[in-house]
């Protein structure tokens, strides 16, 4: 897309495990691979507990992966440690879901926004302050009014602007946004999404956008990766994923989104039940316990991601045919 052939970020066979007591381990992320080109937005979507946030944390090396490789800007982060790692991942910044708790309540907004510069000891006090002010203006905050206030004086949307300003002062290449708008009202959500799109273009950023709402993810992303219980189900360009969902889980996610059109037929291809326990994931395909198309083969063999179209990969033994739009046939509920 931008002429360079090397992706800015590539993740290969990422595995993240956490101890679950009694010598048991829970695999939060199992064999996840993807790459993001410079200037691209990758949307990572799935239900709570599917490992999408853990993937984001593992990319930023906040949670160290158990195995697999994370290559950012030509450096293999998974090989590095200490001071070397700190420098190598300087270009990665994060934005979190809860805008209020991710800001230090005892510091002023100007201090919060300037903090990355102080950590890296960039320039003198004056130039740091100027750059913090510029970043605040870029996100639509007036530094003269807002700079001396503290986070509790701001609404959720304003706090998310402060978080974005703080991330911008660090001059990132890659911004990992972990559910940045799920705690916000629809009207404020639109403001923040537009702001993210604007700052991305203005500063030439690459985004990894993590959310559970496929409508939000589709709006901001160039390509989307759907995760379920630690594994990738499907990756495709955003519009292709909506037009031709090949994995039954993707289709179910699409059907769950409320349509703002009262005349739209109520889609009943809804997913039933809760996510199985990640401590004992189902054998074979992990979605099979909630999949209405599941067959014996699905419990015996783990489906591999395979190409079914340009840049469209799916991990399913029986992918849905392309062009099969979402049906409105009523599922019989139990």
């Amino acid at each position: 897309m931008t002429g360079t052939t090397e992706p800015l970020l590539s993740v290969e066979h990422l595995v993240v495990e956490f101890p679950a007591g009694r010598a048991r381990w829970v695999q939060a992320v199992s064999d996840v691979s993807f790459s993001v080109m410079e200037g691209e937005t990758l949307g990572l979507v799935g239900e709570s507990g599917c490992g999408k946030s853990t993937t984001g944390m593992a990319v930023a090396q906040i949670t160290r992966p158990t195995s697999g490789r994370v290559i950012f800007d030509g450096k293999e982060l998974t090989e590095l440690a200490g001071e070397k790692l700190r420098h190598a991942k300087k270009g990665i910044q994060l934005i979190f879901q809860d805008p209020i708790s991710s800001l230090n309540p005892r510091r002023t907004v100007a201090e919060i926004v300037a903090e990355p510069l102080e950590v890296w000891k960039v320039g003198d006090r004056r130039s740091r302050r100027n750059r913090a002010h510029e970043a605040m203006e870029a996100v639509g905050l007036d530094p003269r009014i807002s700079g001396s206030r503290r986070p509790h004086e701001f609404s959720g949307g304003q706090c998310q602007r402060i978080s974005i300003a703080r991330a911008l002062t660090a001059d990132p290449k890659l911004m990992i946004c972990d559910e940045p708008v799920s705690a916000l009202d629809v009207s404020v959500q639109a403001q923040i999404i537009n702001l993210l799109e604007d700052t991305k273009r203005r500063y030439g950023l690459t985004l990894v956008f993590i959310a559970h709402d496929l409508a939000v993810v589709k709006n901001v992303s160039d390509k989307i990766a759907v995760m379920y219980l630690g594994r990738l189900c499907e990756t495709a360009p955003a519009d292709e994923l909506y037009a031709n969902p090949a994995h039954p889980y993707t289709k179910a996610l699409l059907a769950s989104i409320p349509s703002p059109d009262p005349r739209a037929a109520t889609l009943t291809a809804r997913i039933q039940g809760d996510l199985p326990s990640p401590l004992a994931p189902p054998s074979g395909c992990r979605f099979r316990t909630r999949c209405k198309y599941a067959q014996p083969r699905c419990s015996e063999e783990i489906p591999r991601l395979s190409e079914i179209g340009p840049n469209h990969q799916v991990a399913c033994h029986f992918p849905l045919a392309a062009g099969a739009t979402m049906t409105t046939t009523a599922d019989k509920k139990g």
């Binding site: 009207s187 639109a190 409508a215 939000v216 589709k218 709006n219 901001v220 992303s221 519009d239 909506y242």
Partner: peptide, 11 residues
């Protein structure tokens, strides 16, 4: 108009 819509192209 603030609602992200699935039936519109991304971006």
């Amino acid at each position: 108009r603030a609602i992200p819509r699935l039936d519109l192209p991304s971006h």
